[in-house]
Each structure stands twice: as structure tokens, then as C-alpha cells.
Design a protein around this nucleic acid. Structure first.
Lengths: 350, 350
DNA sequence: CATATAAAATTAAACGTTTATATTTTGAGT
DNA sequence: ACTCAAAATATAAACGTTTAATTTTATATG
């Protein structure tokens, strides 16, 4: 097979100069329509495809979107709910018809993620960055803002200047869940959260305390747990909290993996869901419908926000103002299982 | 901040030519140690980092590893067990100390994945390709072999020429599971498999029938189901098979997601695990320990094979012969729950 | 129709790197 | 000290693209 065609090939073929060919391919107004058509025609016939390294060298444009994710350790691969697979999937869908590609930068720690981001920015290794796991006072965000480097976060932040982000509306979720449980008569409501330094964890706690105080209830910090959202963590927390003098009658779990752990703890302890306590989760995989028993969840298909993530990235690269690229998604409440009854009724039954 | 330093900067700084600097950086024997040290020293001081697009343009080397994955559709994001997250994670770990990066090519169908592979190969968009979901008679494999393009598959194939691959030893798993169930007295053993066209599905069926025939049992094709390994599929299959005149007393599930579905089906149908039937799964997430009840599984932490995947890719790019880059991993059998008893005992108990 | 002007094309240089070829330097052998 | 081969370094071109500067061509104007 012959050499892969370049703009030189097209130039030779059409009798034009490479400059004109380049302009034609980039839809420059400096080239007249007739010429453009001729070039596009030839390009098609020759099966021409843009060589990105040429562009990159000349312009600095990489057509790469860096996705920086933190995965703590090799054996840290215990299921923690939604992986990045679904995120990448949505992003990929959004950029499918463009020349952009997602490049993975997977690191082992937060600090390392910051280092990697610095290198990407300083050496212009990508056109934009996507990060998740945003923290309260996240130095990566302020860095990218200072450097005016395009980025979108999956997760909100408390940064002073606006930036592009996509997230689930965690305040809303927690408000819905807590109010619902309160209305069913629950007074001791536990919340199993992600790590404390994450911004969304703080959002959740705020919404939780707000709901409680609206109902005139006091806030008991021992009912809030912070940690990695694995089944192991959920179970462990159930073991602990169920031994309290006044144990919780409801558990709000930040994801399905912890909810599964809590249910598993029920089984081990001989507790029964709906009688001794109920579990309610935030759900992005729609898998809790298969739990035994199925539980009530706030469900948001992850495909939605992740596709928006990709779209925002494109918009940002296209020059859109970050403050117009912010979106919170509101999940649907799906009622399943025991927590649909009121607490009194349940207790009467048992 | 000044321009980012190039080999020109180093050349100016050291009084050498760019050619010598380049050779020094690449540890060419043509440059004497004293000079090399001088160059490396200067590079370090200047904070020099290789500009890959320059290299790429000149040599064609991309430092990119393409990972081509098929995700059927937007709403197809129902949990199907291990995502690609864990795979990418392992690969990332293997290539962490190299300049290589993983680039995602996520497509919607098998055919599209073939198209994408053709483009990557023909336009040399990556130095190597990793694919999963290998099929019986997989045209992508023969294509890459013909084009002599480096690739590693996650999953075996029936290709005539050897190629680099990593996989779980599915024959072994099935043999272990079936023999175990047979020894406990089970005679009607169902198997919930992935799609029929996948090569490993065939491996599983072969091992299954082999075990059965060794035990002098005949093969009932209605006990084997093929489909997408989601909880929904598992449940659906349980609903169907449990209505057979002679229903299975054991279900071997190809992953945890289907096992969860089967267990969920038990609950809906009022069946009890251990009394009416047992479930046993192949497990890569170690999550079935949190099922209610926990089930026996063949467990292989996905981090192992995925890291090997990355290493094999590097070896391949380094010129290693593919036939030396083949590995099957053997999972551990983890005994949990009801299927540890013999069938007779269980039936006596009930 | 000549001329001024706008439009469309070309020329040439540049981005950072490697490498074939040419040149200079080094050092060993006389 | 001189020669010569070997070793080390330098020169220059190339990879594919874009773009500033320039030239050519087309169009409008008096």
C-alpha cells in the first residue's frame, strides 16, 4: 500500500499549493467555494485523514481530553459502585463525531493527580482536563483557573470563581430522602457518606442538618459516617451504629455499594429490613432493584451527566464561558420495598 | 513564564548541536559519556520534557496505547459486573513509569470497533491496541495480524497464528465448579453464560460438557443460557428455568451481576438459596461476599490480569514475540454459603 | 480600457524531533 | 611531530501542518 496521503498529495493531485489545501480543509473564507469543493473531493477520493501530530506541532492543539482519575491502590479494586467506565462512556459519546479522544491519566493519590495536572497544563499535553472527586478548597481547581486552562469537574466545588461542572444535585437528594424518612416517622437517621474532604459530602451534610433543624430535631454527629464507599464500609458502619443505645431506624447511603454492605450487615446481624431499620440510597447504576430486598433509591442514570461532561468540554474548548457550563442533575425517587410504609405501621406489624 | 524548553534550548545552553543533544537524550553510543552527562544535567536544570508531537511527526511513534471497547448503547449502562475501569486501572499501573498513555476508543458495536481498529492501524494512530470481548473467528484479530500491528487481547481466541493475550482460565473455572457441584450430588446444573459468539463462552461450554460426560451425564442444552451478563438477564433466566419440569438445582453464573439477578429471582419466587437451588459465580470484584446470602465464587482480582495486559503491551512494543506473551490466570475458589453442603443433606434438612 | 482594490492563491518559514551524511576532533601508532 | 582511522560532533533535511507575507488573479470603478 502507498504512503498515507497528506495535504501534499492533495496539492499535487489538484494542482494547488499545500497552503490552499490546508485552508480549504479548514473552511477558511480565503478560499473560494469552487476550490474548496475540488479539494474536499480529492481528499475524499484519496482517503485523506488529518495527521494530528503535524497540527499539534504547528499549533499546539492536541485533540486530546485528559481524564485524571484517582484510584488509590492495586488491591483497592473493591467495588465502589459506578466506575469511571460509565463516565468515559458518556464522554466518548459526546465527542464521538469529533476528532477528540479521551486520554486516561490514572494516578494513585490526590497529590499525584495534582502533579499530573501541572504537567498536562505546563507541557500542553491536552486541550482540556476532566477531573472528579472535587474537594473542599481544591488546589487543582484554583491552579487550572490561574493558568486559564480549560477544565470541567464532575462534582461541585467551593471555588470563588465560576468554573464548568456537572454533578448530581446532592443537596436535593438528601433533602428528599431525609424529609421522606421524617414524614414516615423516623427520628434517628444515619447517613453513610463519602470521605469528608470531598465537596459533595459537605453539601450532603448541610442539607441533612437543614432538614433536621426544619423539623426541630437536633443533629447527632455520631449518625454520620465518612469513608470510602465500598460494601465493606457500609457493613462496618451498620455493625457499629446498630449497637448504639438508640440505633438509627434508617440509613441513607451515598451509593449502592454501601447500601449493599448495610443490607449484608442486616443479614449477618439477623436484622430485617423494614422491621429493624430501612435503607435508602443514591443510585447511579439501577442495580439496587436486584438487591434482596430491593430498596428505595434516588436514581439518575449516569449516562446523562457524563454525556453533558463531554459536551461541556467541547463547548469550553470552543470558547464558551465556564459560567454558562454548570449543571446539576436531579434524580428520580424510585420507591421500592419497606420504607414505603410508615414507621408506626411497621412497628405495629412486628 | 518563558517558552517551554526544547532540545534547541539545551543545545544553546551546552554549546552542542541539537543532533548531539537528541542522541544524548536517547542514550546513543555515538555520544561520549562526558557529553551525555552534560546534556542530562542541562535538561534537568531546564526542566526539559520531550515533546511527543515532534517525535511522532518524525518517527511515527505515538506513545499511545489504544483501548478499543464496545458499549452497546446509552441506556445500556445497566450494571454488567466489572467495568473497564478496573482494566484501565491495571494497564495504567503497568505503564505508569513510561511515557505511554491509554487512549479510549469507545464504540457502540462490534462492527464499529473493527472500523476504528482499521483507522488506528492505517493511520498509525497508536503504537498498539488492546481489545476485549474476543469472538470465535474474530476478524479484528486476523486483520491486526495481517497488518503486523501490535495488539493484546483480553480474552482468548481461536486464531490460527499465536497472538498476545491475557485471560481468566475459563475452562478451569467451569471444570472446578461443575465437578464440585457434581460431587455434592447435583445432577441438573444450569449455566448462565455471556453471548454465544464470544470465544470464552465456547470454552466454558466445552469444559461443561466435558465434565458432564466424564461423570456419565448427558448434556441438556436447555440448561445453558446465552446473553448479556446483567442482573436482569440472570433473573429472567431463573424465572424461566425454575419452571422446568426438572428444574436445575444449581446455577453457574459467568459473573456476579447475573448471580445477583438469580438471587433476586429467588426472592421474588419465594425460593430459598441452599434449599431449592444454589448459585455459584465467577467473580472479579469480590462483591458477592456481600450478597444476601453470600455465595461461593471463583475469585480473581481483576488487577492481576489487567496489569499483565499493560506489561504485555509494553513487551510487544519492545519487540517481544507474541507467542511468549500469553497468560491464563487461575482464580481461587472461595467457599461461602449453602453450596458447601451436600445436596442430600440439604434436602433432608428442608 | 486602465487602474485601483479586493479576493484568491502561492511562497516560505516554522513548530520539535530524528537521522543520514558530512565534518571535525581525538588519540593511538609510528 | 605526523598520519590515519576511529570516535565524536555538526549540518541539514525531513516528517505534516498552519500562517504571515507576498504574489497573482479577479472584480469593480471612473
Amino acid at each position: 500500500m502507498a504512503q498515507r496521503p497528506t495535504i501534499k498529495t492533495i496539492a499535487r493531485e489538484t494542482g494547488l499549493s499545500t497552503a490552499t489545501v490546508s485552508k480549504a480543509l479548514n473552511a477558511s473564507p480565503q478560499v473560494r467555494p469552487r476550490t474548496r469543493d475540488k479539494v474536499l473531493q480529492a481528499a475524499k477520493e484519496l482517503g485523506y485523514e488529518l495527521n494530528i501530530s503535524g497540527v499539534q506541532l504547528r499549533t499546539g492543539k492536541t485533540y486530546q481530553i485528559a481524564m485524571v482519575t484517582v484510584i488509590a491502590s492495586p488491591d483497592d479494586d473493591e467495588w465502589a459502585g459506578v466506575g469511571y467506565t460509565q463516565l468515559i462512556s458518556g464522554i466518548s459519546r459526546a465527542i464521538a463525531h469529533t476528532p477528540y479522544r479521551v486520554v486516561q491519566y490514572q494516578v494513585a493519590s490526590f497529590d499525584e493527580s495534582f502533579e499530573v495536572i501541572k504537567r498536562i497544563v505546563q507541557n500542553k499535553k491536552a486541550d482540556g482536563i476532566i477531573i472528579s472527586g472535587t474537594r473542599v478548597n481544591d488546589p487543582r481547581i484554583s491552579f487550572m483557573q490561574e493558568q486559564e486552562f480549560p477544565f470541567v469537574t464532575y462534582g461541585t466545588s467551593d471555588a470563588s470563581a465560576p468554573h464548568a461542572y456537572v454533578d448530581t444535585d446532592n443537596r436535593r437528594i438528601v433533602t428528599i430522602c431525609v424529609d421522606r424518612l421524617l414524614s414516615k416517622g423516623h427520628r434517628r437517621i444515619a447517613m453513610i457518606n463519602a470521605r469528608e474532604e470531598l465537596n459533595y459530602t459537605q453539601n450532603r451534610v448541610e442539607a441533612y442538618t437543614a432538614s433536621l433543624s426544619r423539623a426541630g430535631l437536633s443533629f447527632d454527629p455520631s449518625l454520620i459516617a465518612y469513608g470510602r464507599l465500598t460494601p465493606a464500609f457500609g457493613r462496618e458502619q451498620l455493625f457499629e451504629m446498630s449497637m448504639f443505645e438508640e440505633p438509627p431506624t434508617a440509613y441513607i447511603c451515598a451509593n449502592e455499594a454501601t447500601a449493599m454492605g448495610v443490607l449484608s450487615g442486616f443479614q449477618v446481624r439477623g436484622m430485617e429490613h423494614g422491621r429493624d431499620a430501612v435503607v435508602i440510597a443514591t443510585d447511579d447504576l439501577n442495580v439496587s432493584q436486584y438487591f434482596s430486598p430491593p430498596i428505595t433509591t434516588c436514581y439518575l442514570p449516569i449516562s446523562k451527566p457524563s454525556e453533558t461532561l463531554g459536551q461541556f468540554m467541547l463547548d469550553l474548548i470552543g470558547g464558551e464561558d465556564p459560567k454558562n457550563l454548570q449543571k446539576l442533575f436531579v434524580p428520580d425517587l424510585i420507591e421500592r420495598g419497606a420504607d414505603t410504609c410508615n414507621l408506626e405501621k411497621q412497628q405495629a406489624q412486628s
